[in-house]
Design a protein around this nucleic acid. Structure first.
Lengths: 204, 204
DNA sequence: GAGGTTTTCGCCTTAAAGGCGAAAACATGG
DNA sequence: CCATGTTTTCGCCTTTAAGGCGAAAACCTC
């Protein structure tokens, strides 16, 4: 009868007539779950299949939101974080929404600087590596992560170092994301940067 | 009084309760303008600012649709193609929608195989170069385009060649997009292909 | 057949990513 | 306090992809 009762669903709600959708989703989050410190929010996709929920059709605009790993927002008792590799049964089409969000995040981690939204203001390379590994689903090399981000000019060393773990080891340097990387920069063009072009030779 | 009258606007219309949005936009296009042979359609973004149109708020889901360069669909007399570099004044927020679509296309041309949707079933490298140049807004090198697409395994030579232009010159070989590239393949991961990973050394 | 045109190919340079091991910088146990 | 284990960081090298440039190929017209 109510096949979707007692299943987990994503936070959300109805759009008010005086707000746009992004404002709305932020309000919903702030009301229902205490997730206010979103470091990044972007539209994911619109889900509009006529039968996606029982009853009259509901069009949903899904968003991807990222919270830095260092803040653990207080959430109500009926709410929970779920690891994406072990999702419970979800209501409606929410599972496919989550999977799309995951894929989007993975893709953008590679070709944008969206990683800044996952990291605390200051972090060690190993910590960042952990975040990237978790998000991407495979182990990332710290060495390479370090170099790739540096070469892209996204990483800035703060002077400081973190305390070594209880097992000893060299204390890790603390880094920050460069200021100009604090907004998501979309793809680095692949097929021809804006530089001078072509015009190869004689064109009279 | 009616600041948006007599301005150009994008095709579109209301969503019916028994169709999803993509179905809807395809229907609208087929009805209003005869653009049926869309080689690729994807969601662009939702536009929902409360004041984006006068009167009660209208939420619009914008799509990017691509038509191969060889078909020139019949369009009604009140409808026109406009070059994106010389847009007329548009109604509402339609200009920003168009610009977003343009940017999306440009980005995806670089890191996906979306180009297949712009090209006719068979084409010469120069023709393809023309399409890429027009879409990207800068001159692309034919040599490099050729190699990049080949190395990605997207280009397949048909045996045939096109007729040389009236000015002579070596007849150009005709190519096709490889079959497996006929669906948009999203990013080639940059930061770590799925291959073996890390595990660098001793982990006991 | 000479000269002009367009396409294609081959070789080289540049740039970014990834691998691997050594060195650096810490902890702890004898 | 020195040897040993641990973790991070650095340097050098390899691999892969993109981009440049000129020569060769293949066609036209006069």
């Amino acid at each position: 009868m109510e096949p979707h009762a007692h299943r987990w669903s994503l936070p959300g709600g109805r759009l008010r007539s005086d707000e746009d959708i992004e404002t709305s989703i932020k309000r919903q989050l702030a009301e229902k779950v205490d997730v206010r410190q979103l470091a990044h929010v972007e539209q994911l996709a619109v889900f509009s299949a006529p039968d996606r929920v029982p009853g009259p059709r509901v069009v949903a605009t899904a968003f991807l939101g990222l919270v830095p790993s260092d803040n653990d927002p207080a959430i109500p008792t009926d709410t929970r974080w779920h690891p994406v590799e072990a999702l419970p049964r979800t209501a409606f089409d929410h599972e496919s929404i989550v999977l799309r969000a995951r894929d989007r995040l993975r893709a953008k981690l590679s070709y944008t600087n969206i990683g800044f939204a996952l990291a605390p203001p200051t972090f060690t390379i190993s910590a960042l590596r952990g975040l990237y590994s978790a998000a991407l689903g495979y182990r990332v090399s710290a060495t390479n992560l370090q170099r790739v981000l540096s070469r892209r000019g996204l990483l800035e060393p703060t002077g400081e170092t973190a305390l070594p773990g209880r097992a000893g080891g060299r204390p890790a340097a603390l880094f920050t994301f460069a200021r100009r990387s604090m907004a998501v920069t979309d793809p680095f063009a692949v097929l021809r940067p804006p530089g001078q072009n072509e015009q190869t030779g004689k064109r009279s």
